[in-house]
């Protein structure tokens, strides 16, 4: 049985599943673009031909899936359709979803989505990403998530560069009733990290979330700032940072792959958080980053509310993206 059918059946039984519903709702706009276009395409052709595949390629590329991966998917579909003599458009689309699933699932490590806590002492999560991707907001949502699980969370405002960054995180800390360690504007971020680590050890904190400056990834000295923060953290707390999340804006294009690559060079990324998936962007960048970098997506932002940061689930994601088609 094809994976697509499998998903469809799985989800028809899973209608009340809350997570699946959140994906359904959050990705409504994305789906409208992606799924309805696939659907419309399959209705226009009685059987697939060269033009069909060209149009399919266009849909993939316009969803930010990336040229390389798109071309590879299409090539594979071409081969398989020839080999198996399949010409029915709907079948081809289903095969494509299968391929997308397989490509994601086999492209890198699988790991639990939830933050992996160490047994003793504080667990440190370093949060990196370029400007404007929603780092601070994601940190607030993550803090809220783990507070609800009964963890004692500390926020560390090591973004001393951007005007207003410390204030923004402080506002969140107050709303969440969560301790925060801050430093001076334009001060040394590593010393803020040091203070944070010290506070965490003294106050039995379970989870330390370190916000860093959202500096563009191609500036060597800015990246060395991150390396220094890492050095300080690991000196104070063994193994820290235990997790490093890269935040990527879901509306980012192929530059997202560059961002992931660059950050991976300076800090061992253990996960990616994709934000702003509730816009109209199709977030194909999820597939391209996975394909090129291999780092798993751990969380996905499906809306502005605190609870809208969800664990990433490939089934739900593909289902959310394609639901329109299966029900049309």
């Amino acid at each position: 049985m094809g994976l697509f059918k499998f998903l469809k059946e799985k989800f028809s039984k899973k209608k009340d599943n809350e997570e699946a519903k959140a994906y359904e709702k959050g990705m409504e706009k994305s789906r409208k673009n992606f799924a309805s276009r696939l659907d419309e395409l399959s209705k226009r052709y009685a059987s697939v031909n060269q033009e069909y595949f060209e149009e399919l390629e266009q849909i993939l590329i316009e969803s930010d899936v990336g040229v390389e991966l798109s071309l590879r998917l299409i090539e594979k579909l071409l081969d398989e359709s020839k080999e198996q003599g399949i010409t029915e458009p709907k079948k081809i689309n289903e095969m494509m979803v299968d391929e997308m699933f397989v490509s994601y699932a086999t492209a890198g490590d699988t790991i639990k989505n939830e933050i992996q806590f160490v047994e003793n002492g504080p667990t440190v999560l370093l949060v990196v990403g370029v400007n404007g991707v929603g780092k601070t907001t994601s940190i607030a949502k993550l803090a809220n998530r783990y507070q609800k699980q009964g963890k004692k969370v500390l926020l560390v405002a090591a973004d001393t560069f951007r005007a207003g960054a410390v204030e923004q995180l402080t506002v969140w800390a107050n709303r969440l009733n969560c301790p925060i360690v801050t430093g001076k504007t334009n001060g040394d971020p590593a010393s803020v990290a040091f203070d944070g680590a010290k506070y965490a050890k003294e106050h039995d904190v379970d989870l330390v979330i370190v916000d860093t400056a959202g500096r563009l990834q191609n500036k060597a000295n800015l990246m060395s700032e991150l390396a220094k923060i890492n050095r300080v953290l690991s000196r104070e707390i063994p193994g820290a940072p235990h997790e490093s999340f890269l935040i990527i804006d879901g509306t980012t294009g192929q530059n997202g792959v560059l961002q992931a690559k660059a950050f991976k060079e300076v800090t061992p990324l253990s996960g990616i958080v994709i934000t702003k998936m509730d816009g109209t962007s199709k977030g194909g960048i999820i597939l391209s980053i996975r394909d090129e970098i291999g780092v798993p997506v751990r969380f996905i932002g499906l809306g502005e509310k605190m609870e809208d940061l969800k664990e990433f689930d490939l089934d739900n994601y593909l289902y959310g993206l394609l639901l329109g088609e299966s029900e049309a």
Binding site: D64, G253, N255, G256
Partner: peptide, 12 residues
């Protein structure tokens, strides 16, 4: 417009 924006920038 963010120079890093993807294909959706035009829709925006």
């Amino acid at each position: 417009i963010d120079a890093m924006a993807g294909q959706d920038a035009v829709n925006v």
